[in-house]
């Protein structure tokens, strides 16, 4: 365990706790972004540069911007936060606790496979290697996913297109 790993894990756990514990939703989102950053750091330590960069672009750079966007629009803060009844709090605690229990139970018996230094390819996380895997082993799911995304994008463009006769402000 390198000191960098320990540091990243420490920050990751701390900021993940911050997401849950922060009173202000905007602070929660910012902590979540920090968590994504530390995760990207972990990817880098694992020599997966592409994954790290894409994680930052997609999650930290786009999705979290939308989160922040919505939260800023809603103008949530401590004063306007509705008071939750005790029953809801208890129910949430039980639900969360059982999820934790399941996770712990599932992960307790996991035996990490480890790796064999002789056959381990250190370049597996690089973008060209990743591309080869995606386009050879997982060509069909990859293409299906891309078609899905393309359809979504075409749909959004169609929704945004001005129809004939629509008022042009």
């Amino acid at each position: 365990m390198s000191p960098l790993f320990l540091f990243l894990s420490f920050v990751a756990l701390l900021s993940a706790l911050g997401v849950v514990l922060a009173k202000n939703p905007v602070h929660s989102v910012l902590f979540l972004i920090l968590t994504f950053f530390t995760l990207s750091g972990h990817y880098l330590l694992l020599n997966a540069q592409f994954l790290a960069a894409v994680n930052i672009i997609v999650y930290a750079g786009a999705i979290m911007v939308l989160f922040l966007f919505v939260i800023m629009f809603l103008n949530l803060n401590e004063e306007t936060e509705p008071h939750k009844p005790a029953l809801a709090k208890i129910a949430a605690a039980i639900a969360g606790g059982s999820l934790l229990l399941i996770l712990v139970a599932a992960l307790r018996n996991v035996n990490p496979a480890g790796y064999d230094p002789a056959t381990f390819k250190s370049q597996i996380g690089m973008v060209d290697q990743l591309g080869l895997v995606l386009f050879q082993q997982y060509a069909l799911p990859f293409e299906l996913a891309s078609i899905l995304l393309l359809a979504a994008m075409v749909g959004s463009v169609m929704l945004g297109k001005r129809e004939t006769g629509e008022r042009n402000f």
């Binding site: 960069a53 930052i56 672009i57």
Partner: peptide
């Protein structure tokens, strides 16, 4: 020199908006 240099620039540019968002909020 990193082999995903373009993505790195892209990521940093996309993070730049946080400075504006946080400051504005």
């Amino acid at each position: 020199e990193i082999n995903v240099g373009m993505l790195y620039v892209f990521g940093m540019v996309s993070l730049g908006v946080y400075g504006i968002m946080i400051g504005g909020w």
